[in-house]
């Protein structure tokens, strides 16, 4: 049996909780958890998060149009840039909490998507203002290039809805939602780490993918 140290076990906790490890790694990791209270606590926190996430509805038909309220909350969810003093490092920050917040946001976005879809358009977190130095550099920042391009493309695509088959429309909408969820999760992470270059890069990539998909969808040949 392999022997894992704390770093190795922590790096595979997600897979351990998801039961995605092979048998040897799972046995070794569990052996480490039995002897290590710190890693065990992380594992238990991850297990609780997974249980909480699974209890969230995967697909919910809203009883009423929830979008206005969600839009208001998303609008308020701007990333605030600035210098922050790190709190005393008494214990590791519970990044699971941020992950849980992201999971809840994803569900909120999904609800918004469903609500918007009934009216013809997924209204999602990606309609929120953009605030990231990579995104600003790439697209010109909030209120300028990116948002304008996105709005124009959405409008163009909306005009073409009757030309696309329901199946194609559904694929495009579902994948825009996948990207929007990704954007929401990155932005949640950036709330804790606003100057993380990696997150900024990934956010810029996600916005590029969103624009690319919108561009492709608006250029598709008519099906109907």
């Amino acid at each position: 049996m392999k022997t894992f140290d704390c770093d190795q076990v922590l790096s595979m906790i997600d897979d351990l909780v998801d039961e995605a490890l092979d048998e040897h790694d799972r046995t070794s990791a569990r052996s480490h958890l039995e002897a290590c209270p710190s890693c065990r606590a992380e594992f238990q926190a991850a297990t609780r998060l997974q249980a909480a996430t699974r209890s969230l509805p995967r697909s919910t038909e809203p009883e009423r149009d929830l979008w206005p309220g969600i839009a208001h909350r998303i609008e308020d969810r701007r990333v605030v840039r600035g210098e922050f003093e790190r709190p005393p490092a008494v214990r590791p920050r519970r990044w699971w909490m941020a992950a849980a917040a992201a999971a809840i946001l994803v569900v909120s976005v999904s609800l918004a998507y469903r609500a918007g879809l009934e009216r013809g358009w997924p209204q999602t977190a990606a309609t929120a203002p953009v605030e990231s130095f990579y995104v600003r550099a790439a697209y010109g920042g909030p209120g300028t290039g990116l948002e304008s391009a996105r709005d124009q493309l959405r409008s163009s695509l909306d005009d073409r809805r009757d030309e696309l088959s329901p199946e194609t429309w559904s694929v495009v909408m579902e994948n825009l939602l996948v990207i929007d969820n990704a954007i929401a999760r990155i932005e949640t992470a950036m709330a804790d780490n606003p100057n993380d270059g990696r997150l900024n890069r990934q956010l810029a990539t996600a916005y590029r993918q969103q624009i690319n998909l919108l561009q492709r969808a608006t250029r598709l040949p008519a099906e109907v």
């Binding site: 190795q8 922590l10 790096s11 590791p92 920050r93 990044w95 780490n193």
Partner: peptide, 12 residues
């Protein structure tokens, strides 16, 4: 093996 990028947060 990978290393943590932050002692108190996620990241490898």
């Amino acid at each position: 093996s990978p290393k943590r990028t932050d002692d108190y947060g996620p990241g490898r």
